[in-house]
Design a binder for these strands. Sequence first.
DNA 1: GTCTATATGGGGATAGAC
DNA 2: GTCTATCCCCATATAGAC
Lengths: 181, 181
Amino acid sequence: MLKMTDKKERILEVALRLFALEGYANVPTSKIAKAADVSEGLIFRHFGSKEALLDAILELGIEQVEHFVAEVKQETNPRLRIQKVIQLPLLVTREHEEFWKLQQSIKYHNPELATKYRQSEVFQSLVKSVEDAFSNLKYQNPKAETQLLMMIITNLFTIVEQEDLIIKEAFVKFVQSKYEE
Amino acid sequence: MLKMTDKKERILEVALRLFALEGYANVPTSKIAKAADVSEGLIFRHFGSKEALLDAILELGIEQVEHFVAEVKQETNPRLRIQKVIQLPLLVTREHEEFWKLQQSIKYHNPELATKYRQSEVFQSLVKSVEDAFSNLKYQNPKAETQLLMMIITNLFTIVEQEDLIIKEAFVKFVQSKYEE
DNA sequence: GTCTATATGGGGATAGAC
DNA sequence: GTCTATCCCCATATAGAC
């Protein structure tokens, strides 16, 4: 990937942090500019609009998550694959916690953008691979199982952001135990 | 309860719906006024500020949910009590559903308000009664079980993608089956 | 690429009449 | 209790110089 301008990069980082922390709608571009030590105008030079900035951040996040998802899909043992999916929030949030938090929050601010993510290849393929695993394991209702598990996982991300690491890990283990044989 | 002015009531209803649907930050008071067929000024006469309006809505929501929660708590058979909690999302009316959704969304706009609700008597007592049920049933980790179940329930409320009642009911049944003996 | 200065609109909120 | 009119701020966005 071509190296971005330092400042453009800084804007992305800072905006991600602030959006995740305080919510997209609550963060004026002026605040981003100040925090990134950049002129406000530059944000619009680079991204065109505040919303386009959000979009760029999400694109970037999806990219970064791709590798984690690939890891899960590559696991052929269905039982293990499910264990790995459950662990995703722990693994991903370690590096991309803010992105996930943002992802959650925009569900409410900006449903279209959230939908865009939900329908992204990455997410869809993850869902499918989970469903396959449940099918292989002869669960009676693989679709519902998948839906339930994805729901739990999505929420694990948000819990994860609240509690301390020990509690998180314990809870993830607990959920995993639900899917052992 | 004293009967409110029709218009005050209408503002509350409309605002609840719009906030839940589009997010607090995305709904200007002008829009609420128009939708409720009321002057914008009246909103401020009655509630003082937009945020105070949100607060009033949440208060009201808590009140309305109280009776459903009481129903659950009053069930002494722990197995049945859990079945009933899971059914909560189906029992509450559409308005309550909106209330629940709003409750979720403000986590990001206005964490203090969300916390206030989370720590409300109603919610806390529901959590406690679920935890008791799990304890009685000798689940190994009642606290984690409760956390997981409450998480699932909260999400059941917000499954919008499946507005189809049949699907929703099927899914609730599916979750219930997880907690049968 | 980046800054400074500025335009524009819209959102929350108030005043005052009825 | 309710409406109309209005204020003011601040957030997004643009223009133009460097």
